[in-house]
Structure formats: structure tokens, C-alpha cells
């Protein structure tokens, strides 16, 4: 994938629009209030109880349940608002490796997801992490090109940051809950699964889109190799023999499998996309998985 490839070609945009329509037929009704979300909110339909926590609206206390059970429970109703798509793009240095192919592919995915959402009439926010700016929000078909420009303007970051705090900061600026698509290679010092689980617990329908590149597995053996961590800049000089390289590839795959397993355990949707994959097929899979559904 050439990083200079446009994020979305008109043809691809047209196909995505058709794809969005075909997928929408499978859903029901108007987008606003039509799309059932998993977001709990202040709607009319009771969904569940949850323990009271300080700060909750006292009007939502279920006194009957209190009388029966002796516990303060808050009635939660399904939100009846249109879900907001928040695209969180990892701009760390590891994403910029190999001529920035992973970052470019991540931007294309974010652009495609955002485009589909905007075409649906959903609000879309785009943010980068770690330590990104406040997310910029877009709504409606009219702002599609603005959104695409914003995505196109994403650059890799020199700043190091910790996943949890970075995602927290981004989501604090997001007024409403929605769908959080985290697009990253998930190479991080902190546990990214934990950060994503925290997102989900904060009410976001969290999706993980893992961008991989075959070049990550390709490293030539050498007598004196100075390995530099793309994320932290830490270096290590070692002799790289073939066995070590093989073991590295094995560990890398194990790492990815473990990530997938952990995300599944946290009920976080996961889709792995290779930079060499066809974006359209990736989007088909994502939409079929209900990535844009709460």
C-alpha cells in the first residue's frame, strides 16, 4: 500500500455508499432512534438496573427495588439517540514504520468508517492518540469532505503517551457516548486491552481494528544490530541470528493471538487488517460485524 494512495477514491466512496445502503436494509427504521444501541441512557425503554453511584440523578432511583432489596438501584433505559462514531487513530511511531503504511491504512479505515457514518447521517468524531487534540466532530453528508480532510491531515506524533490517559483525555472531550473505533497496531507499553475495557465500561461500544504490516515480521539477522524501539526510542545492541528472528516472529504472532483473546474476553470486537488488504473487503467485514452498530 502506497502511503500516497488517496484515502478514499470516488469509486470507493461510491461503493461504500452502496455498501452502507445494503447493510442498512438489514437494519430497521430511521437512523435517529431507529438504530437500537447498546448505549444505556435516558430513553423510555427500561433496560436494566445498576447500583447507584454518587452523581447519579436521584430521580432515576428505583424505590420499589429499594424496598424489596434494600439496595439503591438506578433504572437504566436504552438510549434513544443516534450513536456517535468516534474514530481513535493511533499515531504513535510504530504506526509510522515502513513508510507509514500502517498509519496510512489506519487513516483509510478511519476515513471509510467516518464516511459511512456521515452518509448515514450519524455524527463522527475523529481523534488521535496518544495525547491527541480534542476530537473534531462532523455531522451529515455535508461535512464528509471536511471530515476526510481532517483525517488526511493526521500525522504521526513525536509525543509519547500512555494509552489509558490518552484515551481518557480524548473521551472526556466527547459529550455523548457512542461507538469507539480504536485503530492501532496495539504495540504499547501499557496494556491496551485494559484501556479499551475502560472505554467500554465508560459506555462506549468499543471496536478494535488492529492494523498489521508484514514488514513487522521481516527483520534480517545480523552480527551487530542496534535495535531501536519505535515507540520509546530505547535501543539494544544484539547479535541477531536466524533462530532469534524466528522466535521473534513466533512471539509477535503469539502477542497478536493473545490480544485477540483478551479483547474477546472483554467483549470487544476485533478486526485485524493487513496493510495489504483491500479496504473495501475490510469495510464489508466491519459493517457485517456491526462495527457501526452499538
Amino acid at each position: 500500500m502506497n502511503p500516497r494512495t488517496p484515502l478514499l477514491t470516488p469509486e470507493l466512496l461510491a461503493r461504500l455508499e452502496r455498501l452502507e445502503l445494503s447493510v442498512r436494509r438489514l437494519a430497521r427504521g430511521d437512523p435517529r432512534g431507529e438504530i437500537a444501541t447498546r448505549q444505556r441512557g435516558h430513553g423510555l425503554l427500561f433496560q436494566d438496573h445498576r447500583p447507584y453511584v454518587p452523581g447519579d440523578d436521584p430521580r432515576l432511583l428505583d424505590w420499589n427495588a429499594y424496598l424489596r432489596l434494600g439496595e439503591l438501584l438506578v433504572r437504566e433505559a436504552a438510549a434513544e439517540e443516534s450513536p456517535r462514531l468516534v474514530c481513535l487513530v493511533d499515531v504513535s511511531r510504530s504506526m509510522s514504520m515502513h513508510d507509514g503504511r500502517k498509519l496510512h491504512f489506519a487513516k483509510r479505515v478511519a476515513a471509510a468508517l467516518g464516511a459511512v457514518s456521515l452518509l448515514r447521517g450519524q455524527a463522527v468524531s475523529i481523534a488521535v492518540f496518544p495525547l491527541g487534540r480534542e476530537p473534531a466532530s462532523y455531522f451529515g453528508r455535508e461535512q464528509l469532505w471536511s471530515y476526510l480532510e481532517a483525517v488526511s491531515a493526521i500525522r504521526d506524533s513525536e509525543v509519547r503517551g500512555e494509552w489509558n490517559s490518552s484515551l481518557e483525555a480524548v473521551l472526556r472531550a466527547t459529550r455523548s457516548r457512542g461507538i469507539a473505533c480504536v485503530i492501532s497496531d496495539f504495540f504499547a507499553e501499557a496494556d491496551p486491552v485494559r484501556a479499551l475495557a475502560q472505554l467500554r465500561r465508560r459506555g462506549f461500544s468499543t471496536k478494535a481494528i488492529e492494523i498489521i504490516d508484514d514488514e513487522d515480521e521481516r527483520i534480517a539477522p545480523g552480527e551487530r544490530v542496534l535495535l531501536r524501539d519505535a515507540e520509546t526510542g530505547r535501543v539494544r545492541q544484539e547479535k541477531l541470528d536466524s533462530a532469534s528472528v524466528r522466535r521473534y516472529v513466533q512471539l509477535l504472532r503469539e502477542h497478536r493471538e493473545r490480544l485477540q483473546t483478551q479483547l474477546k474476553a472483554e467483549r470487544i470486537a476485533h478486526r485485524r487488517a493487513n496493510t495489504t488488504d483491500d479496504l473495501e473487503s475490510v469495510m464489508v467485514d466491519l459493517l457485517r460485524q456491526g462495527t457501526l452498530s452499538d
Binding site: M97, R228, R236, Q237, R247
Partner: peptide, 22 residues
């Protein structure tokens, strides 16, 4: 002197494990 060949890796902790095992 012969300088070492620098390689950028996405995530060095994986390599740390490789060398630790070695």
C-alpha cells in the same frame, strides 16, 4: 570502528523476551 546496523522495531519488549530466553 564498525558501527552497528540500526534497525527500527515496532515493539522492543518482544525482542527483550527473545534475548532473555536466549
Amino acid at each position: 570502528r564498525r558501527r552497528p546496523e540500526e534497525r527500527l522495531v515496532p515493539w522492543l519488549p518482544l525482542w527483550d523476551r527473545v534475548f532473555a530466553e536466549r
